[in-house]
Computed example of a mutant assay.
Amino acid sequence: MATRYFIRLTDPERARGEDPDLAFRSQGAEGFAAELQEALRTPVLFERWRAKQDDPDEVDPSLGATDPAATVTGRDEHLDVWLEATTSLPGTLFKQRMRWLAGNQWSLTDVKSV
């Protein structure tokens, strides 16, 4: 079953994770949406994170789960960026990817089962 997440980036300029290799690079809503969608659909972001661990081979592979059907849309509204992500990934993995990408500069405003 899929879940829809509604995310608000109140300061998109600062919506960057601690590690620049993992963090958002985009400036606008469409770019943020595309980067998050890739992080949900493919293992690329997870593999970059895993390679940075002390013992990458010991990382639980289930943390790298993907959802090839995940979709993310974005819109600019005033000074905020709003993202709407639909994925079958568990919430813990979704939030993990958001922390890598945006650090703590995001808020989850709503969650709905689809």
Rank of each mutant, 00 (worst) to 15 (best):
S88D: 15
V44D: 12
T73K: 01
M1C: 08
P20R: 12
V81G: 00
P90M: 03
W49R: 08
L40S: 08
P56E: 02
Q37C: 12
L93S: 08
A39R: 01
A15D: 06
S107I: 08
F32V: 05
G17P: 01
Q105T: 10
R16C: 10
A23W: 07
E77N: 03
P68W: 06
Q105V: 05
D76P: 04
L40C: 07
L93C: 09
V111G: 11
V72Y: 06
A2T: 14
F94G: 01
F24A: 15
T42E: 07
E38A: 15
A102H: 06
N104W: 06
T87A: 04
L83K: 01
F6T: 03
T92Y: 14
P43Y: 07
A70R: 01
W82M: 13
L9S: 09
L83F: 01
L36V: 10
W49F: 15
L9F: 09
G64Q: 04
Q96D: 14
D57M: 08
M98D: 04
D55E: 09
V81D: 00
V59F: 00
F46N: 01
T71N: 03
M1P: 13
L45K: 07
W100N: 00
W82T: 06
I7T: 02
F46M: 02
E58N: 12
G74C: 07
S88W: 11
A23L: 10
D21N: 14
Q105G: 07
Q37V: 04
A51V: 06
R16S: 05
L108I: 05
I7H: 02
T86D: 05
K112H: 14
S26I: 05
Q37H: 02
H78L: 14
D67I: 09
L101E: 07
E58R: 13
P56A: 07
A65D: 14
L79D: 13
D55F: 03
V114K: 08
V59C: 01
L83N: 00
D11A: 13
T86W: 02
A39V: 03
R48I: 02
A39W: 03
D55N: 08
S107A: 11
E35R: 02
E13T: 14
Q53H: 00
P56T: 05
V81H: 01
D21Y: 04
A34F: 05
A102Q: 03
G91R: 13
L22P: 12
R97C: 11
E13P: 02
